[in-house]
Design a protein around this nucleic acid. Structure first.
Length: 431
RNA sequence: CGGAGUGUGGCCUAGUGGUUUAGGGCGCUUGGUUUGGGACCAAGAGAUCGUGGGUUCAAAUCCCACCACUCCGACCA
């Protein structure tokens, strides 16, 4: 994409009310815009990142047999009465003109359970795993920390259906692995830890995936040996020791919950009377699991972990672009009427432009995502500052200085070193 | 929902009762000069000072209410 076409611009200063790093940087760099507390618009750059995250999740969930579907966000009251969750505090409620009570979906067990029930009658249909990536609405009393806790946010919610506990357990472990893979691909491998947590209204325990960062709103007790953690909210029950190796030397860390998985068992199949006929011809209640990942929160967590004083440092797989191509050239336009002689500044300037244009095309043809900073009215300093803020993994600079050596300059966002590479060798360095 | 704080052009901010017809910086527009780390010069556009009410001869400034946002807590699939 040509940066001159991007309708957003970077900002030198963040709005003073934004205190969290993720919102400061994402707003300054033009990735998101706040409509109201906990509600954000995703601008072109931010939407690219969101789609990258979404696709990583989609790929990994499909690998474990998840079938994607899309459920309504508008729900009828009746489904929620069945599970006695119509009174749930964070549910937005509304009424149609004809007086029908509805709500905006804050989770989808009440919708998916009767839906799957319509099709699944026998053990032969099991197991089933379905998921969606959709907007959830939660009337939080306090939205906060930029993307970390929204009132409206996109969530991947996966639901699995099983004939017995053994099968549920087996799938639960599969999901755990898939989740670790997702967070690894999002650049959070080192910071993400499986954490024993409260099961909420569903079960005694659940597992959370916590990303360690000082800005996290949860506190976890991490076993340095097993790499397992326990959420502070249930630490007393666990008597301050690792659930695996029993050690009491736990590290206290702040963390962001980016995923949560639950064994629902018959919690929802019971109220919806979702049974199936087993091999012996007997009716049995379906057992369920549910597994969530908040996409904006994950995006915010990535920024909380991956940034420096200059801006964001996107992990490769979630970066909006792989390459930031930056020509540094004189604005040649007002020289144009004069004749161009070999070796002159003007000729070299046109060369910078010509070569960067060519490189832009070549990279695009090689299906590499490039943000091409073709803005002619920006100084080098401004382009560099923007590049650092936006945080694309690889920066390629084309200038008279590099061309004198028949080279381009490569710099990884996360590193300090600058590497000069011959023009015809550049593709080797770009994946 | 309890506590604390903040609201002045798009963003940051000065001004805390009277030459304030609200000042500056960034950004924006026009012209010119520049071009390896947010460069410079000149001219210009853009604000009913969050909203409503009150006090006063006089309110961005004092008082009240409301609204919005941020932070701490409670809450949190």
């Amino acid at each position: 994409m040509r940066q001159s076409q991007l309708f957003t611009e970077t900002q030198r200063e963040a709005p003073k009310d934004e205190k969290s790093k993720n919102s400061q940087l994402l707003i300054r760099a033009g990735f998101i815009d706040k409509l109201m507390a906990g509600v954000y618009s995703y601008l072109p750059l931010g939407f690219l990142v969101l789609k990258k995250i979404e696709n990583i999740i989609r790929e990994e969930i499909q690998k474990i047999g998840g079938q994607e579907l899309f459920l309504p966000a508008l729900h009828p009251k009746e489904n929620w009465l069945k599970t006695s969750r119509w009174q749930q505090k964070e549910m937005f409620k509304l009424k149609s003109r004809s007086g029908k009570d509805c709500s905006l979906g804050w989770t989808h067990e009440e919708i998916i359970t009767p839906l799957v029930k319509k099709f699944v009658k026998s053990y032969k249909n099991l197991p089933v795993a379905v998921y969606q990536i959709q907007t959830k609405f939660r009337d939080e009393l306090r939205a906060k920390s930029g993307l970390l806790r929204g009132v409206e946010f996109i969530m991947k919610d996966l639901y699995s259906f099983h004939q017995d506990e053994e099968d549920l357990d087996k799938y639960y472990e599969k999901v755990k692995k898939a989740y670790f893979q997702i967070f690894k691909r999002c650049g959070l491998a080192k910071q993400t830890f499986l954490t024993l947590a409260s099961g909420g209204t569903f079960s005694k325990y659940s597992h959370e995936f916590q990303v360690i960062t000082p800005y996290g709103e949860d506190t976890i007790y991490l076993c340095p040996k097993c790499k397992l953690a326990i959420n502070k909210e249930i630490i007393k029950e666990e008597k301050y020791k690792c659930s695996k190796c029993q050690t009491k030397k736990l590290e206290i860390k702040r963390a962001i919950e980016v995923g949560n998985i639950f064994k629902l068992k018959d919690k929802f199949s019971r109220p919806f009377d979702f049974t199936f006929v087993n091999r012996e011809g007997k009716k049995k209640l379906i057992l369920m699991g549910c597994y969530g990942i908040g996409l904006p929160r994950l995006m915010g967590a990535i920024v909380e972990v991956c940034h420096d004083e200059k801006g964001i440092i996107w992990p490769r797989e979630v970066a909006p672009f792989q390459v930031h191509l930056i020509p540094l050239a004189e604005t040649s336009s007002h020289f144009a009427p004069y004749p161009v002689w070999p070796g002159s500044v003007i000729e070299n300037t046109q060369k910078v432009k010509k070569i960067s244009q060519k490189l832009y095309q070549d990279l695009q043809e090689a299906r590499i995502e490039v943000l091409y900073d073709d803005r002619e009215d920006k100084t080098a300093g401004e382009k560099f500052a923007d590049a650092d803020l936006i945080g694309i993994p690889l920066r390629i600079v084309v200038s008279e200085r590099t061309l004198r050596k028949n080279c381009l300059e490569l710099k990884q966002r996360e590193k300090k070193e600058i590497k000069l590479v011959r023009i015809n060798q550049v593709k080797k360095y770009v994946k």
